[in-house]
Design a protein around this nucleic acid. Structure first.
Lengths: 124, 124
DNA sequence: TCCTTATTGTAACATTGTTACAATAATACG
DNA sequence: CGTATTATTGTAACAATGTTACAATAAGGA
């Protein structure tokens, strides 16, 4: 069960590092790295999630975006939101925390906060 | 372009009314109303959204849920969240408002807030 | 009742993601 | 270094969710 360092893992990780605070969709990676198979990319992304390297967020149109983890913790708990600009289509991981109060006796296990609108660059 | 009242619209609306604060997936409606076609159901749900009768929310696994509107306004702006219980799998539309602050020069157009965890009934 | 056309059903397709299994290649060990 | 083990990959096939084109049907006004 020892993990191996492979070309594909290195390439995909580099892809994600390059994006910084912005997110990637699986098909972005596919087109940037056409030498690797779709299935392989999905599998590696999942293993990165399991290893706490990236987190996955679902957009408001149901697509998966992947972001480099900063301080998710091992269970990927993050109460920050992700912002998609409807003009430039970039998706940004925002560090602002959101305080959510759930009613008594409700327990939060996971949050997925998505906001779309217009970013500062595009507003000008 | 006059809209017509059809059996299918009546049946689907009734389905949604019955759920109250809870949401429905398209395939819930399909199995409750097998006499209507999948495509028809999708089309009617979309028309209800356009008419401001229901709103659609994307879950943290990318599925669409439909909820009866209460005070969305015409553009379906709603800064409340939706809570899915990981045990009973019910999805609830929560009325608590969430105040989100976006950085200067960012403009919010739409929000999709999803929380999953354990609801009060299941916690007991 | 009849006519217009909004609505529906069918079939075909697109996208996103998963599974099974055989082929390949990364690493440990002699 | 060479070889064996097995983690990883590619292929093909499938599943779920949603959309489009077009012909058939039915709601509602005349």
């Amino acid at each position: 069960m020892n993990k191996r360092k492979t070309q594909s893992k290195k390439a995909i990780l580099e892809c994600i590092q390059r994006t910084g605070n912005y997110g990637l969709k699986s098909d972005n990676i596919e087109s940037e790295l056409p030498q690797f198979n779709r299935v392989t990319i999905y599998r590696i992304l999942q293993s990165f999630i399991d290893d706490g390297i990236i987190h996955k967020v679902i957009s408001d149109d149901g697509k998966s975006y992947y972001f480099k983890c900063k301080n998710c913790g091992e269970k990927h708990f993050h109460n920050h939101y992700h912002f998609k600009c409807n003009i430039c289509e970039k998706v940004e991981c925002m560090d602002n925390n959101i305080d959510v109060e759930v009613p008594k006796d409700y327990k939060i296990e996971h949050v997925n906060f998505w906001i779309s609108g217009i970013c500062n660059s595009c507003k000008k």
